[in-house]
Each structure stands twice: as structure tokens, then as C-alpha cells.
Write a protein that binds this DNA or RNA. Structure first.
Lengths: 149, 149
DNA sequence: ACTATATAGTTCGATATCGAACCAAGGAGG
DNA sequence: CCTCCTTGGTTCGATATCGAACTATATAGT
């Protein structure tokens, strides 16, 4: 059937699989993460620890690919927990700078350990080298999607 | 730094990329889909059209990897729009069977066209064959995650 | 300088999703 | 049969997210 051919394209299949995997891994992460901390919150802490803090909310939203209103919300959660502080941006009074607190760094390290442990449980069932090859392809796909949004 | 090594594993990187891609493609789909129809709703219609209707809500929830409460909600949306009907299951009075209506089939075909068109815009920027190779690996990853949830 | 436009964040309403509690029906053992 | 456990669905409260409207500041064009 000609009609279905248009949707059974590799791109579509990949996106379908990816959607399901994202849902599954998100659920898995949420289960092992400490009470009240969502994957998205952890992702922000992790990003700040890796790339460096002092980024603006908008920069972080761009990196995480979420709407800026969402970022306002998430940063509020993290700030209320004392994991980050928002300070005024020195060069632009509209903007903020997001800084990790010591508690935030400690929290992230603890969460990383928990996640690593949880993933270690079944990472043996997967060919790690295989996964390594996937990363650049996925990154490329992400770039294309990002450019067309 | 030893500490970061535990999280900079291929598996983790892949899941991070996948999370972002899922968010991007979901947003993209939502933008092109008709008013009020969410990707998840389309996914259900598509699943029923491909696998065959008459499935129970729980079966569909399993295939989509969403909570059953979510499925109740989504099917309600689709039913209110007349795209599916829920009929009592002949063998089990607790259960239902989800049937596509003609309108549902038509709607799906239209949506497929719209999506195919939207994706066609940038699918040329990606190596389709490359993507094809990704599918089995992703499927495998999905299985492992699924088994460990 | 002055106005117009763009940008950073916030706020708000709507919706998808989850998880847990719940209800109803099936099935298993005695 | 009757109880106990399981299973399919629904309901409910909480939360993440989006998109759009809004505020304040910055930048550009004239």
C-alpha cells in the first residue's frame, strides 16, 4: 500500500523507537532518583556541573530543549531546595546567572552514583561499544531536528 | 576525574541524546498535527491501524509504554472526537475493546500525510540508510530497558 | 534622543503524564 | 460456594510541560 510507505520510513521508525525509549528511561530514572527530584531537574544540575555554572536560564533552556517558561519553573524548584541560586546578571539587568551551590554539587554527585548503580545493573546486557557508535549519529539527528524547529 | 567517568558512559550519553531528540521531535509533531491532537493520540491511532484494532486499553498502554491511567485519558479524548469506540470485551466483562471508526482511519491517513510532508522537508539532510541501521540497535536497547523496568 | 523592535524572564491556563487508591470482575484453593 | 489474590479500568491529586500574553530591559534605526 503506497499510503503507508510514506510513514514507514527509517526516520519515522527511529523517532518512534526514540520516543518509547525516552519514556522508559525517564520513568526508570525517576524511580531511582531521590524523592521529588525529576529527571529534568537532575539534567540541569548535571549540565551546570559539566559545562560550568553562571549560565543564563535561557541558555540552559536551549541546551535542554525546553520552553523558557518550563525553565523558570524548574529553576524555581531547584532554588527552593537550595541546590542553585539565581543571581542578577552583571551585564544585563533583564537576565540572571544560575549558580550551583555546594549542596547542589553534592546532590548531583550523589544522584550520579545512584544512577550509575541503577544502570550498571543492566548495562552488561548491552554492547557498550555499539552504543558508543550510536552517539554521533544521534547527535547529528538532533542537530537536524534542532535546525528545523 | 574519576567521579565523572561513571556517568560519561556511552549508555548515559545515548539516553541523554535520546531524551532531547524525543522532546524535539515531539514538539515538532505537535506543531504540525491538527489542532488539539497530541502526538500520543496519533501514536495510538497509528498503532491500531498498523497492528489491528480490537486491542484492549491495557495492551495499547503496554505497546506505547504509558501508564494505564494515561491510556484511559487518551482514549477518552479520541472517543470524544469520534475517532475510536470502546466496546465491551466479549470474553471479559472488566475489559474493553478499542475499535477504530471510519473517521479515525481517515484522520490517521490525513495526519500521516501531514507528518510525511513535514518530515520530507529535512529528511534529505539525513542519510536514510544510516538511520535504517539505527533501528535494530534502538529496538534492542528498548527491550533491555523494558525488561528492567 | 526617540521610537520601534527584539530579547530575558515571569505568569497563566490548558493538557499529558504519573502513581496510588479504588472498584469491579476473574480465577484459584479450600 | 466462599474467601483470597490478581487483573482491567477508572479516578484523583500532583507535577512537568507547553504556548501565549505580559513586563522590563536592551538594541537599532532614524
Amino acid at each position: 500500500m503506497k499510503r503507508n510507505a510514506s510513514i514507514d520510513t527509517p526516520l519515522f521508525q527511529v523517532l518512534t523507537e526514540i520516543g518509547i525509549i525516552a519514556q522508559l528511561s525517564g520513568a526508570l530514572f525517576n524511580k531511582v532518583l531521590p524523592e521529588g527530584l525529576h529527571v529534568s531537574h537532575f539534567a540541569i544540575l548535571n549540565h551546570l556541573a559539566r559545562i560550568g555554572d553562571g549560565q543564563t536560564p535561557l541558555q540552559i533552556a536551549g541546551a535542554m530543549q525546553v520552553a523558557k517558561g518550563t525553565m523558570t519553573h524548574s529553576l524555581g524548584v531547584l532554588e527552593r531546595r537550595g541546590l542553585v541560586v539565581l543571581e542578577p546578571h552583571p551585564d544585563d539587568r533583564r537576565s540572571k546567572r544560575v549558580m550551583l551551590t555546594d549542596a547542589g554539587r553534592a546532590f548531583r554527585i550523589a544522584a550520579v552514583d545512584i544512577l550509575a548503580q541503577a544502570m550498571g545493573g543492566f548495562s552488561s546486557e548491552i554492547d557498550e561499544a555499539d552504543l558508543g557508535l550510536l552517539v554521533p549519529k544521534l547527535a547529528e539527528l538532533r542537530k537536524v531536528l534542532d535546525a528545523n524547529r
